[in-house]
Amino acid sequence: MTLTFTFDPAVTPAVRDGILDLWLDVTNAGGAVGFVPPVTRDDIRPALIRQLTQVADGTARLLVGRDAEGRVLATGFLAFNAHRLMRHWVMAYTVMVHPGHQGKGYGRDLMAALADAARGLEGIEAIRLGCRGGLGLEHFYASCGYKEVGRVPGAIRVAPGDDRDDITMYLPLH
């Protein structure tokens, strides 16, 4: 099975609900996408609405990966930088692959599709992304061509006594 990636898909109720269910499954499987398990759809829905509002107002773009049946199994958002001196790069966030489909190369496919999408954006020269330490995510992103360019020790508190590093990764596109 392969995933078909669509940049700037129509955000239909099926796409919206697919992203919500993906985010729920990823978080509850221990994924580092802004929440700590356990969560419900109601916990995630406000964050998704904020992100889809950014897509609607043009400050962010959406990439969705679907299987042959149309199920949303991967996503990534690219946010434009509003600071006039930093408009030459975008920030990737809420980068997810369904936990039941990890280890099949979909994460690499997603990262390649995000880079291709960013290359198609006028004036964009790089992608930055942040990841939570303690899970080895920085090694995965490094294997996709990203370089670690910053680390703030203990900046992410997932629970009392469980602080993780906030790691910044960077991918030049040219």
Rank of each mutant, 00 (worst) to 15 (best):
R87E: 12
L114N: 01
T94D: 10
H101W: 11
W89V: 07
M111H: 00
R87V: 08
D116E: 15
L110A: 06
H88V: 06
V95E: 03
G107R: 01
G103L: 04
M91W: 12
G100L: 07
G120W: 03
M96A: 15
R87N: 11
A92H: 08
R87L: 01
A92V: 09
G120N: 04
A117M: 07
Y93A: 11
T94S: 14
M91T: 14
H98S: 13
G107H: 01
A117D: 00
A113L: 04
Y106R: 07
R108L: 08
L114D: 01
V97S: 10
V90S: 01
A117G: 09
M86S: 14
A115F: 05
P99W: 02
R87C: 11
R108H: 15
G103W: 03
P99N: 06
H101E: 12
V97H: 11
L110H: 06
A117Y: 00
A118M: 04
A115Q: 12
Y93C: 05
L114T: 06
L114F: 08
A92I: 10
M111G: 00
M86V: 05
R119K: 15
V97N: 10
K104V: 00
A92Y: 10
G103P: 01
A92R: 03
G105C: 08
H88E: 08
T94H: 10
V90N: 00
M111I: 12
A112Q: 14
R108P: 04
M111L: 12
D109I: 00
G107T: 05
A92N: 09
W89Q: 13
V90D: 00
G120C: 05
A118F: 02
P99C: 05
H88C: 08
R119P: 06
G103C: 01
R119E: 02
R108V: 12
K104S: 11
M96C: 13
W89L: 10
D116S: 15
H101Y: 11
D116H: 11
L114H: 04
G103E: 04
Q102P: 04
M111Y: 00
H101S: 13
V95G: 06
M91G: 03
